[in-house]
Design a binder for these strands. Structure first.
Lengths: 207, 207
DNA sequence: TTGGTACAACGACACGGTATTTGTTCGATT
DNA sequence: AATCGAACAAATACCGTGTCGTTGTACCAA
């Protein structure tokens, strides 16, 4: 009965409980699948449990309640996507290019992310307040990640910024706007247009 | 029975109908007052009409229906606020400073605007989709205004930009984010922090 | 530790019936 | 010519009711 949802990243330290972690991950996978297909409100714990092949009580034992399960699914997905982006950046030499490419990838990937788009189109009244009025609670994870990435590049002498946290917040605000309002001159569906934008307007910020 | 709501700016050409325009403006004023105090949904046409001191039928005769009245009130308020900002900018010498100051004023004024804040707090499910998913329909007015302002400054040789429309959209996206998500390192309630931000990150865009 | 069941509490939902609001029309009034 | 006040049907919001599904917890056998 974990107090906070355990992300899949902490799996490495408990490879012994292979069986236990297996059900844990099965439930998270089932939750992601069902939430993506039917939305948060219309999927029941029964749906998730049966899809995961476990009893409903087991899901409650692992995640406490539905809301914590939702948080765990979303948190794991965020970390997974961050991991994908980070992995892709390993192929780049310049840390400056890496920061800009992270921006581009985050925007374009979010724009085609099944769960995010599902919730935006079928339950906007639930998710829009979260991604705007209360967005500081949501992006905390992303901002510290991005800010530390900026600081690392700065200490290595590759970029020069005034305030890494401020810059990270600005980049995240632009991501927020592009994802929530895709219809404009820069289109998240067109990776090239986003990359051009980042190159022209964000690169100067990196000193 | 005007097809589209007539903004107050077209008043100049019809000063003859002083009496008619007076009721027109009285209804708009009453609408603004009631919408601000009770929200869009909870104010009735009866409320607006009686507050304006006219019959309910007159309000319908002038604006068609409630939705068109709402649009007219909001449109007039947007134009009024734009006018206020433009008037304030007349006091500045540098067109470059004027553009940045317009950004600062727009953000800080929107953050304390009674109607906008009222709708954000009491009817977010109605207004958030409008200001995000369908925001391109809303900001058309602002973008052409801002882009033409940028172009004017550019033709006068005061700034040098790559694409005035693109730049205008970027500035508007940052305004959108700051207004909809005020909680962050830059706070719209603190004019100085917004001005610092504009100075540091937006000024380089102006060439 | 799991699965299955039983359970109370809660919220969503469907239903009628009522009241309000909307949008239109008309005649009287200025 | 435009306004007001009134009347009107239609649409919509509201309310009380009951039903159903879901949630979250507890228990016991495996």
């Amino acid at each position: 009965m974990p107090d906070q949802a355990m992300p899949s990243l902490s799996l490495g330290s408990e490879l012994d409980f292979n069986n236990g972690d297996a059900t844990y991950i099965k439930i998270l996978d089932a939750g992601l699948a069902q939430f993506t297909e039917f939305g948060l409100r219309r999927t029941t714990m029964e749906d998730v449990a049966s899809k995961a092949g476990v009893g409903r009580a087991t899901a409650y034992r692992r995640f406490g309640d539905k809301h914590q399960l939702i948080q765990a699914v979303i948190l794991r997905e965020c970390q997974y996507q961050l991991g994908l982006i980070e992995a892709h950046l390993k192929t780049l030499d310049s840390p400056r290019d890496a920061l800009l490419e992270a921006f581009v990838l985050a925007v374009t990937r979010a724009h085609v992310h099944p769960l995010l788009q599902r919730l935006l189109s079928s339950e906007p009244e639930d998710i829009l307040p979260l991604l705007t009025l209360q967005w500081s609670r949501v992006i905390a994870l992303f901002r510290v990640q991005l800010a530390s990435q900026i600081r690392r590049a700065e200490e290595a002498g590759h970029v020069k910024v005034h305030d890494a946290d401020q810059l990270a917040e600005l980049m995240l605000r632009l991501m927020q706007s592009l994802v929530l309002s895709p219809d404009g001159l820069m289109n998240p569906a067109d990776e090239a247009s986003i990359r051009d934008m980042a190159d022209r307007y964000l690169r100067p910020w990196l000193g």
